[in-house]
Structure formats: C-alpha cells, structure tokens
Design a protein around this nucleic acid. Structure first.
Lengths: 244, 244
DNA sequence: CGGTAAATTGACCTGGGTCAATAAATGTGG
DNA sequence: CCACATTTATTGACCCAGGTCAATTTACCG
C-alpha cells in the first residue's frame, strides 16, 4: 500500500501521529483516473471538491482574452489540487493532466473536520501554502526580471528537483515530459525561442538532450544561468503545535 | 479605538465571536512606527516575528544577482507581513515602507495558540492565503503574457481597488504614492517605458494625471486594456467551521 | 506507411530597453 | 521664504532580445 500520498508530504514536515494519519487517510478514500491530456477542472467550472494528486504530473493554467496561455504551476504527487474551492464557487484556473494520473477527490467538509480536530495539520497546511507562495514569487521575479535563457534554465532545474524529490533518483538525467510550447507558456516565451534557448544551453554544454530526455551536464553553470536559489533548505517549523 | 485591523479584515469573511475578537486583539498589543523608506525586514534577516500592517503602505521585493529588483506585492492595512517566518529562519524578501506606517509585531507562538484555540480563524487565514495566491497568479499571467500597457493599467486598477477597499472612498481619483521606477519594478518594465505607457493611457483619455494624483476617466476601457478580472466577487466560504 | 503533432531554422520585425540630456518636483539648511 | 541639491519625470535617438512567419525535418501513432 502506498498509504496516503498527502500524508507522506506532510510527513516531511512533521512526525505524524497515528490519529493524524488516519484523518489524512480519509482524504484519499476515493480515487479517479485522469488520462493524459484530460481536463480535471476547467476554468469557471463549478468547484465542489479538492483533490490530492497521487501519481502522474499535471499543470494548471489560465487563458487570456487574446487566447494566449500562462501556465501557473506544474503539479506532482502529493500536491493539493483545486484549493481555490476553499474560496470560489467557480475555478479561476484550468487543471490538465500531462501524463496519465490518479487523483483522490474529497469534499471541502473534510478540510473543516481536519482543521477542527487536528490543529497541527492545519498549521502544516498553512506551511505548504507558504511554500507555494514563495515558489510563485520566485517565478514572478524570473518572469519580470530575467532573460529567456535564465527562465528556461530555471524551469529545467525546477522540474528536475520536483521529479527527484519523490522519485528519489539522484540521476542528473530526467524527462520533463513537456513540449517546447508548454515550456514557453510557463516561462512567458514563444515555443520558437524556447527552442533557441535549449539549443544554446546545449551548445554551451550545460545540458544534453536526446529524445525527450534532458541530462544536466554542468549543474553549477546551469544554476548560475538560472539565477537559482534553493529555498526549502532549512525550514524552521518550531511554532507548530503538538500533534493530536 | 480602531480595534484590531486584522480582525476587521477577517471580519469581512466571517462574523467573529467575542472570543475570536479577543484572541485577535492579542496580535496587536504592541506597535511600532516605521518611517517612510525604512526597511522593516531585510532579505536574509533572521525572522522572529510576524506583523500586521495597521496603517500606511508597504511593499515587498527581492533583488536579483544583477541588481535588478522585482516588487512582489504592495501591502495595505490589515495585511500580514513576514508570514515566511512560519517557514524560514531567514527572510526570502525585503519589506519596506512606502509611506509612514504603523505595524503590530507579534510572535509566531501566537499563531500556534490561534490555530489550536480557534480553528475557524485558522481556516479564515487559509482563505486569506489563497486570495493572495490568486493575486500572485494573476500577476504572473500579466508578466508572462500581457503588454506593457496592460500591465501598467492593471497595476493602477489594483492599487486603486486596494486603496478603496479600506478608505471606503468611491472617488475615481487616487494617489498611488509610487515612483515610476517602482511601478516598473512591479510590472517588469523600465521606468522610462512606464512613463511612455502612462502618457499613452493619458492621451487615450483613460486616465488623467496631476502631481502624483491619478484619475480614472474611462474605467471600462482601462479594465479592458488591463485584461482585468475582478476575483473576490463571490466568495463561497460555506466550509468554514463554526466559531468558538 | 501515411498523417499529425512537435522540433528546428532562417529571415525579418518590433516592443521595450538603453543612454543621455532636460525639466519638474521635493527637500534642506539657513 | 530663498538658493541649492536630490530625486523624479520626460523625451528623443537608437539598439536588441525575443516575437512572427514560413518552410522543413523529425518523432510519434494508429
């Protein structure tokens, strides 16, 4: 049994009690398969549930009036999806599967129960929120103030790190599983220019490519090119209440 | 007495109980004045406290390796500052006063108490987090996929709305209190180009300017130019637990 | 093996950046 | 209240990173 994927995520932050684990398990009692390219939530859909991504990779994006798309984030196992259901009746964003995925849908009411019965879990969820906020501000700074090359390099490193963190792999080789157009929509660039940047990173021997596979050849240079700072190194969670 | 500014903010979301109000009041027992241009928190400073902004306007930003600055958000009364203290020992961002301000510093431990004793307040804080997340993703889409004119127009509207929401004013005239360089650092543009865009918005009769004062002449066109969507219209907070 | 999506490339264009000079606006000490 | 010192705001001239268009190539798929 994989147990609760979300519990594993929170378990990285705190040592969960048995009672906390079983409360979290309730969030993943149901599961649904989402085929590659299928839409889990469409912008303006009525939101009724949240989801925990159990396996696969998804992304969320918005489409602007002129039809252009901005990818907001890539989602990996253990991530919460559709959290805006805690706020809005209608989704502000679209969530699509980039590979075949399994998600566990659960009702908002379970969050209510969780917050009431397990304050430490509520606190830990606030911490996850903040981690996501920091990731967003890093991306904001990248879009606002860095070059195309830096943004592409940064995206590659981000994807690699996230793939690593759950797959455990230490290999410098990975498969982003994104088209160049998707990379562009995430970094605010054109597919054509993404291609030029990838080629340039390759010519400068920072990465190698074959098929969809990317290998990081010169981690240091790549990180430098990307203006990369590793947040999430030294978390300080001393304020969390005791578990119940 | 203004009571707790933060309680007023949360009070927009739920009807607070007496007990909740007094718990929130504890967050604002101390206060500190921050002079215009003074730094409240510097990037990499050791973080020990959070703050509630009681009056004035502040901003948070990061500085990249090449010295360029990206403003992450503008802060108004009732906003929480330095929330990253819930995560990091060191601040990932700098927080500076744009006008003379008053902030109420409080210890992380008070958040602990709040989460344990008042689950509904914890839930409401999660809602605030999400509102901020949505604001960030909107800005991300603006930086990634919209023109300079749209970004400047959008920033003007955002600032106006935030100034309005607490000042209650219905006037279409307001004073951003930002230099053009600051507008540029928030929108990913150059001060020079911000100037050109402001002039253009003025020539197209969407806004008027005199001194630091901006008047919205054609709200509809400005909103269209900005690709503006008003989130926060119909919040749906039915899942919140009862207050204690 | 034909057929469609994705990747590449070259030619050329433009929104925004850069630089530099000037004019306003804000402060400051006296 | 004034003369001077700093920031800001404006403008014009010119440049370039990244976008646009269009044509191939390559990879993937039933």
């Amino acid at each position: 049994m994989p147990g609760s994927v979300f519990a594993n995520r929170l378990g990285d932050l705190v040592d969960l009690t048995t009672s906390e684990r079983s409360a979290l398990a309730r969030l993943e009692e149901r599961e649904r398969t989402v085929r590659r390219d299928a839409t889990l939530v469409r912008e303006n859909d009525r939101l009724t549930e949240l989801y925990i991504l159990q396996s696969g990779m998804m992304m969320s994006y918005v489409v602007l009036d002129d039809g252009s798309r901005q990818i907001l984030c890539f989602l990996f196992p253990g991530d919460l999806l559709g959290v805006s259901a805690l706020l809005y009746a209608k989704s502000p964003e679209t969530i699509v599967a980039l590979s075949d995925c399994v998600v566990a849908p659960f009702d908002r009411a379970l969050v209510t129960a969780l917050v009431v019965d397990h304050p430490r879990l509520a606190a830990a969820m606030m911490v996850l929120n903040q981690m996501e906020r920091i990731a967003l501000t890093d991306r904001l700074a990248a879009l606002g103030r860095t070059s195309a090359k830096a943004r592409v390099a940064g995206l590659l490193l981000e994807i690699r790190d996230r793939l690593r963190s759950r797959d455990g792999g230490r290999s410098d080789s990975f498969t982003p599983g994104l088209t160049q157009e998707e990379i562009g929509d995430a970094t605010g660039l054109t597919a054509v220019h993404v291609n030029r940047m990838l080629r340039q990173l390759e010519e400068e021997r920072m990465i190698a490519r074959e098929g969809g596979r990317v290998t990081v050849l010169d981690e240091a240079s790549l990180a430098r090119a990307a203006n990369y700072t590793d947040r999430f190194h030294a978390l300080d969670l001393g304020w969390l209440p005791p578990g119940r």
